[in-house]
Nucleic acid binder design. Sequence first.
DNA 1: ATTTTTGCAAATGATTTGCAGTCCC
DNA 2: GGGACTGCAAATCATTTGCAAAAAT
Lengths: 150, 150
Amino acid sequence: MAQSTVSTMLHRLETRHRITVSRIAVIGLVASMPGHFSVEDVLAQSRGIGRATVFRTLKLLVDEGLICRVLLEDGRLHYRVSHDTHHHHLVCKECGAVEDFTTCDLEGLIAGLSVRTGFDITSHWLEFYGLCRTCRETVPASRNAILTPS
Amino acid sequence: MAQSTVSTMLHRLETRHRITVSRIAVIGLVASMPGHFSVEDVLAQSRGIGRATVFRTLKLLVDEGLICRVLLEDGRLHYRVSHDTHHHHLVCKECGAVEDFTTCDLEGLIAGLSVRTGFDITSHWLEFYGLCRTCRETVPASRNAILTPS
DNA sequence: ATTTTTGCAAATGATTTGCAGTCCC
DNA sequence: GGGACTGCAAATCATTTGCAAAAAT
């Protein structure tokens, strides 16, 4: 699974960029991460690869759409291997599990807003937070802080 | 307008915190900002107030709900005087104008997702980006890059 | 009088940059 | 061979912290 992810990513990269030892290593790390990860997570395992190269490679992967950014509830940005083109995330606040979902029925809302405000709406951020099935049963009900980021 | 904002904010603060010269100054700056602003924007005008105090005060204002975070398309966080409790932003990519909107008809989407994934969804980030009416007429149509952040 | 808040300067942390050397195609 | 890429270390930028002095209630 991770292996096929790696070859897919490399294949998608080779058209416009060079395949190098460092890039293969970073992509390997990225593909081996469970769920979402920070730059720090990658750096921690990237022995022998320059810090700058890790940053540069991650940026490259984002630009090429091979990984996507995951916005955490507190505003931090994590990354994640991208599976679909347009999708959103549902992040568990407790264990960090992420579910992707592609249905984002915002068309109606967008249409209404466009008319009302005169904006030409071209993109959006949408992320949901909550507790996954497992954590729901584990986490004490008392800790039900409702922090709405936006 | 800005003045009344200042007194409202001070009044809401005095219950649980001390009103100090620095806080009045920071709140004055915040209230005078056109639209959304970065910490940097405040720091740039905060002569005589310690850097740390500016950070601490902004954090305090966020915690008290007096200002809110605005997520920019590229992931940067800005701030903005908060007018409603639960609302979202519509940000112009060109001039930075912000419209608030409170109707976020996500209930249906949330309900469906909850059932499908087993998540208990408690909060969300939702921000829209586009061109405001004015910029729509100014910006060349060729520059219609569709960058979907998430 | 007591507790909170402040300013400062140093510490920390994250990301970028300049550049000579190296590697890929 | 030549441009793309790398590692390194230093530079930059953003944010936090420790602490003694100052200010608020």
